[in-house]
Simulated assay, not measured.
Amino acid sequence: MKIIIALVLLGILAALASAGLFMLRRPRPGQPRRDNRMARALAVRVGLSVALFLFILFSYWMGWIEPTGIPR
């Protein structure tokens, strides 16, 4: 479970980094506009974030994960 969550978080960070690179680069002639590529990367990031949230809720509902609380 921890590995899945860590991989999705890495995917979210990678999508955010690629959107930042698309924003900073100058578009070359013949390439798609950077706005389209940046928007697509940010849409992927939002989709992964929502999917991770729903997966965590589903995992809790199925009993795969349980809250542990704050240790005293």
Rank of each mutant, 00 (worst) to 15 (best):
M62V: 15
L24I: 05
V44T: 11
R28E: 12
P67V: 09
R45V: 10
V50K: 00
G20C: 05
I4C: 01
N36Y: 13
M1V: 14
M62I: 14
L21V: 14
L52R: 00
W64A: 08
P67M: 08
S59D: 08
M62G: 04
L57H: 02
P71I: 00
L48A: 05
L7F: 11
K2Y: 09
L54I: 10
G20H: 05
R72Q: 15
Y60C: 04
M38L: 05
V50T: 12
A14G: 07
P67L: 07
I12N: 01
Q31S: 10
I4P: 08
I70Q: 10
S49C: 01
R25D: 11
I4L: 12
M62Y: 07
I12A: 00
V8N: 02
S18Y: 11
A17C: 04
G69K: 00
R37H: 08
A15K: 00
A17I: 13
A14T: 10
F22R: 01
R72G: 15
M62R: 12
L7P: 05
P67C: 04
W64M: 09
F53R: 07
L10K: 10
L52E: 00
L24S: 08
P27E: 09
I12G: 05
A15M: 06
L21R: 12
G20W: 02
M1R: 13
L42H: 05
G11P: 06
G20F: 06
T68N: 05
R72D: 12
S18V: 15
A41D: 10
L7D: 15
V44I: 13
L52D: 00
R72K: 15
A39I: 12
F22W: 10
I70N: 08
R45P: 01
G69A: 04
S49H: 03
S49A: 12
V46F: 06
L24E: 07
P71W: 00
M23R: 13
M23K: 14
G47M: 05
L24Y: 02
P71H: 08
L48D: 01
I3Y: 09
L13F: 12
I12T: 03
E66G: 09
L24P: 02
M62L: 15
G11R: 06
I5P: 05
N36A: 15
R34H: 06
R37D: 11
F22V: 04
A6P: 00
V46Q: 04
L13S: 13
I70S: 07
L10Q: 13
A41T: 01
L54Q: 02
A43V: 01
R26S: 13
L57G: 13
L54W: 06
W64I: 13
F53D: 10
R40N: 10
I5H: 11
G30K: 06
A19E: 00
S18W: 13
A51C: 03
W61G: 09
A19F: 03
R40P: 03
R40G: 09
L48N: 01
K2A: 14
F58N: 11
A15D: 06
R72V: 14
A17H: 09
M23Y: 15
R45T: 14
G20K: 03
R40I: 07
S59I: 04
S49R: 01
L9V: 11
I4A: 13
G63Q: 02
G11Y: 02
Y60P: 06
R37F: 05
G63E: 07
E66Y: 10
G63T: 08
T68F: 10
